[in-house]
Write a protein that binds this DNA or RNA. Structure first.
Lengths: 223, 223
DNA sequence: ACTATATGCGAGCACCGCTCTTGATATGTT
DNA sequence: AACATATCAAGAGCGGTGCTCGCATATAGT
């Protein structure tokens, strides 16, 4: 459907200038030179359009990160490359990042179609744990914590090669922490919570972020 | 100004049901039985109202967390209590948490009045580092990273007792990480990114969060 | 040629933030 | 007491939003 593509392209273009909450169906229609009511032939609601944009953004981000990091052999370097690539994509397209990891649009419930593309980058991290055969354990990791992660550890469809993994449960728990931290740190930077905390220059921001990636690598026992 | 109070109370009440993006000045006016135009006698714009709500939310959250944790003597326990109290407040009032740490409302720039209340909880963490006299250093911490944190380390107004601190720069850097992680993890949970990853039950969610707090405590060298 | 389906348009509804004019009610001053 | 002034609220209205519905047209299938 070429017209649907045109709609999502125009909508994504609008996301370059305005946040997800202010994305306007009427503005997209104007951009395409058609009546706003015509849009609803292809998209049932503004929320459905947002869902399409979310899936597209997850895939775009994963494509970029994957392309940039697949060929990095050294595991620690690859981990850092993934984190840095995530941050770069977010800085390039802050509104789309906010669409993925910011506050969900009011009353919006993520449909099933979004969870698969959302796990692509975390899967890269799992791949690293896989190759590293991480066995490090951490004092705080208990049977109770392991049990709280069981849903993930048993879902083979979304989490790649989790059935034949050879890293420990505690490594998985730490990997989860690392991933949450990467997204959380990028959100902090993007949403203005680094003001008066870390230097405003790009170099300072990047230096601190890279420091975090190193600490996380140590934490996970990579390298 | 009693009426202004009534406005913010009504607005906060509306935030119990609807997200910050959908907060409506007209609805607040309806709630108060007055014309929407009358609101603008007390608040110059919707954004200014949001700013008032942000400041109030920062202060409310800090009040609750501080009250719950001030009397905890053991430093590690106090740290965990702070994290857990933050999460509880966020679960109680998810929309207000999103107002503080979710995607900023479009085109909104945080005014000066918000930064002081925003630093109150991080200051509690600094207090812990202070008492613990943490000297642990981490391999990844370099002079470059220290330099990127200089703005914070020199701002005495917002960061309590930072002039006479007796913990290392690297401890500060790790404390910053821990704080970002707490907020990031809560955001992940609140915004739906823990689906199919951690168990859906409250007990599972809390178990994993507490695990994270323990790991962070170890990382910071508390206890 | 006739029907059926697909696609687009425009008017319209109810809501939004915000402004401006008008009017009522206090308050203070001579 | 009478007037002037400041304060507050209301209502109409502007341009914007998501979305629906009826109508027109174009294309396709038989």
């Amino acid at each position: 459907m070429a017209i649907l593509d045109a709609i999502t392209v125009a909508a994504n273009q609008q996301l370059l200038e305005v946040g997800p909450a202010d994305l306007s169906v009427r503005a997209v229609a104007r951009e395409l030179g058609m009546a706003s009511s015509a849009i609803y032939r292809y998209v049932s609601s503004r929320d459905e359009l947002l869902t399409l944009l979310i899936i597209g953004a997850f895939d775009d981000m994963a494509d970029v990160v994957e392309a940039k990091t697949r060929r990095v052999a050294d595991l620690r370097r690859r981990w850092k490359a993934i984190g840095l690539a995530c941050r770069e994509w977010a800085l390039d397209e802050p509104q789309r990042f906010a669409l993925l990891y910011g506050s969900p649009v009011a009353g919006y419930a993520a449909p099933q179609d979004t969870i698969a593309p959302a796990t692509r980058i975390p899967n890269l991290l799992i791949g690293i744990l896989q190759e590293a055969k991480v066995e490090t354990t951490v004092p705080a990791f208990s049977a109770r914590v392991a049990r709280s992660l069981k849903p993930a550890l048993s879902d083979v469809n979304t989490w790649a090669s989790l059935s034949t993994r050879d890293f420990s449960d505690s490594a998985f728990a730490l990997g989860l922490m690392a991933w949450a931290h990467v997204i959380g740190s990028i959100s902090f930077e993007l949403f203005g919570h680094r003001h008066n905390v870390v230097g405003d220059s790009m170099a300072d921001r990047r230096a601190y972020f890279e420091f975090e990636l190193d600490v996380l690598a140590d934490l996970m026992g990579i390298d």
